[in-house]
């Protein structure tokens, strides 16, 4: 990776601002739907961090799964289960007690993670950093691990069948 250059510092600053700003938006925006949009910004920032760490596959996964799928499902869930006025739907914002508990838990997790990072004796690998991770993954998945690859398809099949069964019941009820 080398020494941090000005470009890298700018990229890292912008991405960090996206992640932290998005995260704060999720907590503090009064409209749950706006909080969801802030969450998407946060997810995109995390994807950018993965990109800047040269983990392209992880970054693409982050965009496809979190920005694509998770955000869409949450958006539908919000629109389906809405109660009261949308402008004041993020009920946790107004409650000082809940914010205090949340902040305390977040601070505790943060301190624990920082301690873990600082106290672990990280070892630098002597191996050359892997390039073209996606191709490497593809080759591993299809030559050495074909059975797990197909089982993943079966797992998705089961997930879809289960989801359709449960959701259709609700549709018929309404």
């Amino acid at each position: 990776m080398g020494e941090p250059t000005t470009g890298k510092i700018i990229v890292f600053s912008v991405l960090t601002a996206m992640v932290i700003g998005g995260g704060l938006g999720v907590v503090f925006l009064r409209n749950v739907f706006h909080a969801l949009v802030a969450m998407v910004v946060c997810f995109l920032g995390v994807a950018g961090v993965y990109f800047s760490l040269q983990a392209d596959f992880l970054a693409v996964m982050q965009v496809l799964i979190y920005v694509g799928a998770v955000a869409v499902v949450i958006a539908f869930a919000v629109m389906l289960t809405r109660r009261g006025t949308m402008a004041d739907s993020n009920r946790f914002v107004a409650s000082g007690l809940q914010l205090a508990i949340g902040a305390a838990v977040a601070a505790g997790v943060g301190v624990a993670l920082l301690r873990l990072i600082c106290e672990t004796a990280w070892q630098a690998s002597g191996k050359f950093p892997a390039t073209d991770v996606t191709r490497f993954l593809g080759e591993a998945l299809l030559t050495r691990l074909p059975i797990p690859f197909e089982i993943a398809a079966v797992l998705l099949l089961v997930a879809l069948v289960g989801a359709v069964m449960i959701a259709l019941e609700e549709v018929h009820k309404s």
Binding site: I65, V72, V73, F76, A77, L80, L156, A163, V164
Partner: peptide, 18 residues
């Protein structure tokens, strides 16, 4: 409020997204 039927499309979409 959205119709519940939309949720099915979202679920099918998620599976094919994965």
């Amino acid at each position: 409020r959205f119709r519940v039927a939309y949720y099915l499309y979202a679920l099918v979409f998620v599976v094919f997204d994965v």
